[in-house]
C-alpha cells in the first residue's frame, strides 16, 4: 500500500514522532511504499541537526535521517511552520539574513502543498499527533 505520513509533534516532548518512526519503519520493512513523511506544527523540530540527546537515549533526528538514506524516503518540513520555529536550510538562512542553518541530512523544506499532495497521492494518510 502507498502511505503518506504526517508528524505533528516535536521529538522527545511527545511520543508522536517515535510512533511515526516505528510505523514508517515497520511499513517499509513489510514492503509498503511511503510516498512522503510531512512534518508540521512542532513536528518540524524533528529536522534539526543540532539536537544532542543523552548517549543512552535514542537519537530521534538521526534515526529519521538514517531511514531516509536507507529507503530513499522523502522527508518534507513545512516551510511556514519551520520558519516560525527557527528551522532553516542554507538557502532560507541566506534569504532571510540569518547566520546559521540547521536542517539535518535527508530532510528538505517545502510548502504545505506537499501535504495536500500526499493526501491525494497516497492510499492512506496517517497522522501522528496529539
Amino acid at each position: 500500500m502507498k502511505l503518506g505520513i504526517m508528524v505533528s509533534e516535536g521529538p522527545y516532548q511527545h511520543q508522536a514522532s517515535d510512533s511515526a518512526y516505528n510505523f514508517t519503519k515497520a511499513a517499509l520493512e513489510k514492503g509498503h511504499e511511503i510516498f512522503r513523511v510531512f512534518f508540521y506544527h512542532d513536528g518540524v523540530n524533528n529536522a534539526t541537526r543540532l539536537t544532542v540527546p543523552p548517549q543512552d537515549d535514542r537519537n530521534v533526528v538521526n534515526r529519521w535521517s538514517e531511514l531516509a538514506k536507507q529507503y530513499n524516503l522523502d522527508l518534507v518540513v513545512c516551510i511556514a511552520a519551520a520558519q516560525r520555529r527557527g528551522l532553516l536550510d542554507a538557502n532560507e538562512a541566506k534569504r532571510n539574513g540569518k547566520d546559521a542553518d540547521n536542517i539535518a541530512e535527508g530532510f528538505r523544506i517545502s510548502g504545505l502543498g506537499q501535504l495536500i499532495e500526499a493526501g491525494i497521492q497516497a492510499e492512506r494518510l496517517v497522522v501522528f499527533g496529539d
Partner: peptide, 19 residues
C-alpha cells in the same frame, strides 16, 4: 496553541488543489 492557526493555513493552501 498554534493548531487552529496552522490548520487554517493548510485549508487555505489546500483550496488551490480543488479537492
Amino acid at each position: 496553541s498554534i493548531y487552529a492557526l496552522e490548520s487554517l493555513e493548510v485549508v487555505l493552501i489546500g483550496a488551490a488543489f480543488e479537492q
